[in-house]
Write a protein that binds this DNA or RNA. Sequence first.
DNA 1: TTCGATTTTTAGGTATGCCTAAATATAGTA
DNA 2: TACTATATTTAGGCATACCTAAAAATCGAA
Lengths: 160, 160
Amino acid sequence: MRKKTIEDYVELIYVLEKKKNKVHTNDVANILSISPASVTETFQKLSDEDYIIYEKYSGVRLTTKGKKIAVETKRKHDTLKSFLMILGVSEDIADEDACKIEHITNPETMKRFTKFVEFVKKINQEPKWLTRFRHYYSTGEYLPCTIEENNGKKSTKNQI
Amino acid sequence: MRKKTIEDYVELIYVLEKKKNKVHTNDVANILSISPASVTETFQKLSDEDYIIYEKYSGVRLTTKGKKIAVETKRKHDTLKSFLMILGVSEDIADEDACKIEHITNPETMKRFTKFVEFVKKINQEPKWLTRFRHYYSTGEYLPCTIEENNGKKSTKNQI
DNA sequence: TTCGATTTTTAGGTATGCCTAAATATAGTA
DNA sequence: TACTATATTTAGGCATACCTAAAAATCGAA
């Protein structure tokens, strides 16, 4: 796997803190699939830079600064995951890709994604255009938007 | 800037080859904003791994293998850029973000993006739902889809 | 056709994020 | 409480992608 960023660490610590109070070297090492020794090194670095409070052998907690980054990153992650799933990406892959994309996108791009997710979720059902997209994705067939007229017949007059 | 991948190099060489026949150390160094010495190192590595044909002091060309990667990467780049621009991201930022995202997304995700771009571009005008999305983005106001009925009046009955 | 300017390569160095092995601290149980 | 198992840290090492300075090759103009 790619090298881990500060954001990866604080986001993970943030998630684990909800369950465990203190987050330990081994917890992080197992999840990130790296050696505990490497986690210790990074804890020292994150502590120097004031993202976490770290005392040897006793686990870590986020500082205010660390928590801020964590919350922002988690929010980006969740938005990206929703965004990808709206397009039909499976949950596992959406989660993986969100993990990678969350660290690199421009704030403008991120804002577009956020608004897009909001836009799609404004109404309770799946929007018709999205249903048509899914149909196009799986069959290759492009259906024009058919509209239920008052008389119950369909029309292709007003394509949307 | 982040460390450059093999894909970054071959994609750039591919683009430059169209104009220059042979691509030189300095061309690449300037564009990637790294020292010519570093480019030489990477050329040696890419040559060892059969992505480019490299002879000292004489520039490089892509091999078949290198060109294949380059074309794939460029296609991903172009698709991502279009995708982001459809959502309203400005061209410059779309280009930058495409550069980063192109290296990391799962093929499934990439396929969804590709199909989405196709879907939107199937018809000549901007789809109505997309117009409504842009409106929502810039004003925060969620307009339900209004349909021109045969009698010329608008209705919000059939929301799409 | 030679010589100065430019390009490219080589040599040597730095920072970082990972590793393993060994040392040390802590925790749980007898 | 003491001992063993587990968790953590330290020490030393490796690979990589960058760097600068200096050497070497090439180019182009007089």
